[in-house]
Write a protein that binds this DNA or RNA. Sequence first.
RNA 1: GGCCCGUUGGUCAAGAGGUUAAGACACGGCCCUUUCACGGCUGUAACAGCAGUUCGAAUCUGCUACGGGUCACCA
Length: 557
Amino acid sequence: MDYNRLADLLFPDVTLYPEDMEKRYPERSLPEGAKVTRIAPSPTGFFHFGGLFPATVGERLAHQSGGVFYLRIEDTDSKREVEGAAEFITKILDYYGLHFDEGVTADGDKGDYGPYTQSQRVGIYHVYAKQLVRDGRAYPVFSTDEELDELKAADKKAEIKSVNWEEEAEARREAMLARRQFTMEQVEAELAAGHRFALFAAADGDPEKKLKVTDLVKGTLEIPENDEDVVLLKSDGIPTYHFAHAVDDHLMRTTHVIRGEEWLPSLSKHLMLFRYLGFRAPKYMHIAQLMRLDENGNKKKLSKRDMGANLDDYRRMGYSVKAVNEYVMTLLNSNYEEWHMQNPDKDREEFPFSVKKMSASGCLFDIEKLNDVSKNVISRMTASEVYDGVLAYAETEDPEFYETLAADRAYAEKILSIGRGGNKPRKDFAVWADVKPYMSFFYDKYFTREDEMPADRDRADIVKALLGFLETYDSRDDQNTWFEKCKDIAESIGYARETKLYRKEPEKYRGHVGDVASFIRVAVTGRMNSPDLYEVINILGEDRMRQRILDETELLK
RNA sequence: GGCCCGUUGGUCAAGAGGUUAAGACACGGCCCUUUCACGGCUGUAACAGCAGUUCGAAUCUGCUACGGGUCACCA
């Protein structure tokens, strides 16, 4: 067979050669050891939470080494493409603090190795496709539209459990061998009839022979050589992932391909393609998948449908970017947490991220741990930072609360300052959504009496204590004086001045000072629990405090 | 089913031939405390199994079991 002629027949419009591409996209001049990484999502309008892992690793590796981190959009599957998805991706990645040096951005492509959207690179793929035909490594397969439809319909077959794998494999093999048989005349006839073709790479591997590959996280892998022909170009001329991966990562000079371990089974194909194309293969890192527990208690890959799979959900649930990022980092390098405790003031960028520390096995997503990380993150923020965080969250998720907060920043910050700072800060919030119920009683329009007065205390005592409090209250008192007065009130109604005294001899008293504090707390906040009462009253102001206590005593009568 | 990957407490995990097998989360107890949220102390709990190598194995090898991934003109 005259492969040169076949190549011209198949790709009459392609006039460039691989050498031209090499010239157009030369080796990058970067410092020794600099890594070039990328993330390459499909524009489906959905960004998987798990996608944050390879993205974070790529970002850290590139920027830790003075290299390049870029974003490439893999839109080779038009069926799954969603309008505006690329924009959504750039937005959400930016939101999560992943900053790119190159690639698709909100204002178009940035960088010398573009275009960075695969659908705009078809001409480039065809140059290499034509070369592979010339080399006798790739061949066309013609299909009519009906046959194509059938293929698509057959997709579901793989989902049916009762596949006879042996028969299936044999049939596949036979079909493959049959496809490889064709004559130039047949090709000419098909072309003349206007039929479209898919381009396949003929596999030359022997699965009995193993290939030793080093994966930076999995270690040394032994994978069988590839003996399955690989689809390079689909009938519409668009490349498959496999082909685009080889061409793009070579031309964009990616040094490290970081992706999920679901790609491991096709690694053999990719390595073959790199060899056919005469490219040096990049270093690979296959990252273990994030898992969830199914109803039988087995681990399952966290898939699109699962709760918590959508990265954007975390924003909606009110997790801060920092918390999510720290959680991810904790899972990626488990010594991060320890490092962070020892270096509380240092930024995540300063952490010596290590590939060696990464786990080869998939871990379970643990919302409890995320919450803990998140509480710590928020507890370290200033009141002003918390305010900004809540405000940004409420703007989209709770517009009414947003208005309330925005109306008086100083007031909200005062509330958020309670118990903040110092080395034992309060840890009340795991998510921004926790803030509203926490501070609601500070706003008259949200104030409700949620908890009752303690049932085991005398109503008349309560009223006496409350009125006594109003009588002696002086807003100029410091906390100590204020609480001494509470003790006086306790004593005046036959309660113990100290809680300890009461515990020792409960029969001697009708209650204790803690009860008095509770009465005031319930009257003022409507709850049994609240942050520091003295500060709460100071922030609320004397007038509102008096009004609420008066209202409460009315209710008790 | 073939192929590949994985397996240390409930979860995330240190650990790289000799350790009382870290730590964090969760859970329990005690303490602190005017409630809550913190904080301190403390407890329960693990090397999947079996062989082999070795004076000695969580660490090396093999097998088994279990779990996961994957087998598209999807990525």
